[in-house]
C-alpha cells in the first residue's frame, strides 16, 4: 500500500481539491479516471458477449479481453484472434522428442553398451518405437500445457480485473464480462464507458486500485 501511496503523491490532496473545485466534480472521480487501468462491462449472456466482442473489435480496440464461465464457440473469430502458434511449438517439441528418443536408444543400445537381447539386432527399431512414441507424446503434452500457460502469460499474481468486486464475484459463476484496458492505444475512459453503454453493457465499472482508501488516508 505504501508504494501505491508514493505513486499518487503527485496528486496531493490540495491539488485534487483544486481540480475538483475547478471542474465541479468530485476529487475521487477525477482520480479514478486518471488512474484507470481499464473499463469493464457486464453482458447478460454468452450470445450478447459474442456480439459485444465483435463490436469492440470493429471499433478498433486491440487490447481487450472477454470473460465467461465457459468457452464460447466462435469467440476467437469474434475477437479477431489469430491462430495460436501453439500447434507449431508442440509439433517442434514432438519432433525433438521423437528424434531424441531414437538417438538415446541408438546410443545406449547400439553404441555405448551393445548387448544382444534374444537375437534381436542392436538397433532394434520395432522395440524402440514405444519409447519413441511415449517421449514424443510426453514432450508434446508438456509443451502444450506449459506453452499454453506461457502464451497466456500465466500464472500471474496480479491482474487489474481483480479490483472489480462484481467481476470477482461472478466471473467464475454466471457473469459475462468484456474489458478494454488502458494499454490500448485508443483507450479513453469516458469514450470507452460511453461505448460500452452504446453496445448494451451493464454494470459498467472503471477498474482501479482501491483509491478510496488511499484518498481517505491522505486526507
Amino acid at each position: 500500500m505504501s508504494e501505491n501511496m508514493n505513486e499518487i503523491k503527485s496528486q496531493s490532496a490540495e491539488e485534487l481539491k483544486k481540480k475538483a473545485d475547478a471542474t465541479g466534480a468530485k476529487a475521487l472521480e477525477i482520480l479514478i479516471e486518471e488512474e484507470a487501468e481499464g473499463v469493464v462491462a457486464e453482458f447478460p449472456n454468452s450470445g450478447a458477449l459474442l456480439e459485444a466482442a465483435e463490436k469492440i473489435r470493429n471499433a478498433g480496440y486491440k487490447r481487450f479481453e472477454v470473460y465467461s464461465p465457459f468457452p464460447i464457440h466462435g469467440m476467437d473469430d469474434a475477437m479477431g484472434l489469430k491462430q495460436s502458434p501453439l500447434g507449431f511449438i508442440v509439433f517442434a517439441a514432438g519432433s525433438i522428442g521423437c528424434i531424441g528418443a531414437l538417438l538415446l536408444q541408438w546410443w545406449t543400445s547400439a553404441v555405448d553398451y551393445p548387448v544382444v537381447y534374444s537375437g534381436k539386432p542392436l538397433f532394434a527399431l520395432p522395440a524402440f518405437i514405444p519409447i519413441t512414441f511415449e517421449l514424443t507424446v510426453i514432450l508434446c503434452g508438456f509443451t502444450a500445457v506449459v506453452g499454453m500457460f506461457a502464451l497466456n502469460r500465466m500464472p500471474r499474481f496480479y491482474h487489474p480485473m481483480f479490483y472489480s468486486e462484481n467481476f470477482s464475484k461472478k466471473a467464475g459463476d454466471d457473469g459475462f464480462f468484456a474489458a478494454i484496458f488502458v494499454w490500448d492505444e485508443k483507450f479513453n475512459v469516458r469514450e470507452v464507458k460511453q461505448f460500452f453503454q452504446n453496445i448494451g453493457g451493464k454494470n459498467i465499472e472503471i477498474i482501479h486500485r482501491p483509491l478510496e482508501a488511499e484518498l481517505a488516508q491522505q486526507n
Binding site: S118, P126, I129
Partner: peptide
C-alpha cells in the same frame, strides 16, 4: 496395427 506387430515380432 503396430501393437499387434511388435508383440509378435518381439515374442518371435
Amino acid at each position: 496395427a503396430f501393437s499387434q506387430f511388435m508383440l509378435i515380432w518381439y515374442g518371435n
